[in-house]
């Protein structure tokens, strides 16, 4: 058998070599020394981009994002340690930025930055600051379950009566943040018990959007998620569907937990000034108003900035009192592994 180069083979070989050279050249061209901040971001891409829209124009500082999940990025920064390429860390939920803080990897923020945000949305340490907030909520499908049969507390969902009837996104950072609130409010044993019940009861989904969709289609009667998934869908005229309704637990229930998205500057950053400017910008009135105007429908936390009109005021949701700097993400992971949710 002779082995001959067919025409397509030759064409592909040529394409490969041309593209290889192009990549090499492109890689060389990239090595320019422009100011560029590396931002590890776990918040929704579209929201962060919208809030920081004017930053580069105003400061001349370029931004490069590494988008991933809260815990992944937090653990990654801890693993990277001093060598971390990240300058700024933005989380979707506070437990993850706390992990980095506890590892001593965050630099203190400028006082001026901290003062732009209400005290309840930042830890006492002053090493990170909230830049958005969201409330836990229950999405339900009224066709599957009438409003008066909804549980009084999120903890009731561990009851055997809910077997197969509740949707959660166990692998997601949002749900894990909610668990951390349960842990902070109810203690380790009660949390373990609750998770054990959920492990039996819950349908596991890959994301909150998937839960939203599943509840809407009646696949599962209720789902634990954050408020804005429902509001966003409403704003889009029920693109996913408008069967689902939103329920707030209130009454300082763990299910009324308000989760804060945090921003911090890495102590290892080689551009600390620029990084501080970014966090200052993110919490400034300009960016917070962008948040309020955006389609994200999360709550703004900037002092004196009103959130989107569609949202009920945050103060009226009956949230429990949880210190955002006290949530224990590693223990949550451990407990979830223990009961088999991870």
């Amino acid at each position: 058998m002779t082995h001959r180069l067919t025409l397509p083979g030759r064409a592909i070989a040529t394409l490969v070599s041309v593209a290889g050279v192009t990549t090499a050249l492109a890689a060389c061209g990239d090595a320019s020394g422009a100011e560029k901040l590396t931002v590890y971001s776990a918040q929704h891409e579209s929201l962060v981009r919208a809030m920081l829209e004017g930053f580069t124009d105003e400061t001349g500082i370029e931004l490069e994002f590494r988008d991933a999940n809260d815990s992944e990025l937090a653990n990654q920064i801890v693993e990277e340690g001093e060598a971390s390429p990240a300058d700024v860390f933005l989380t979707e939920n506070s437990p993850s930025i706390d992990v980095v803080d506890k590892a001593g990897l965050l630099a203190p923020l400028d006082d001026a930055t901290l003062e732009q945000v209400g005290e309840e949305y930042r830890p006492d340490s002053g090493t990170w600051v909230g830049f958005a907030a969201r409330s836990t909520a229950l999405i339900y499908n009224p066709a599957e379950i009438p409003e008066d049969e909804l549980p009084a507390s999120m903890l009731d969902l561990a009851d055997p009566a809910w077997d197969g009837r509740v949707g959660i996104a166990a692998g997601g950072a949002d749900f894990q943040a909610i668990v951390s609130a349960v842990l902070a409010l109810e203690g380790e044993d009660a949390t373990r018990e609750w998770l054990t019940g959920l492990e039996r009861n819950a349908e596991i989904y890959a994301s909150n959007t998937a839960i939203m969709k599943a509840v809407d289609e009646g696949e599962v009667p209720v789902g634990i998620t954050y408020h804005y998934y429902w509001f966003r869908d409403q704003a889009q005229n029920g693109l996913i569907g408008d069967d689902a309704k939103l329920h707030y637990f209130g009454n300082a229930d763990p299910g009324a937990f308000i989760s804060v998205s945090g921003a911090g500057v890495l102590a290892s950053s080689d551009q600390p000034e620029e990084a501080q400017r970014l966090v200052a910008y993110l919490t400034s009135q300009v960016a917070q108003e962008k948040l309020a105007e955006s389609s994200a429908l999360e709550y703004a936390v900037g002092t004196g900035v009103a959130s989107a009109e569609a949202l009920p005021p945050l103060e009226e949701l009956g949230a429990p009192d949880v210190d955002p700097g006290s949530l224990d993400a590693p223990l949550v992971t451990e407990l979830m592994q223990e009961v088999g949710l991870l």
């Binding site: 991933a68 937090a74 592994q337």
Partner: peptide, 13 residues
Amino acid sequence: IYDQYRATFNGAG
């Protein structure tokens, strides 16, 4: 493994 990775980065799990 991917879920574990997202929860713990490169944890032992």
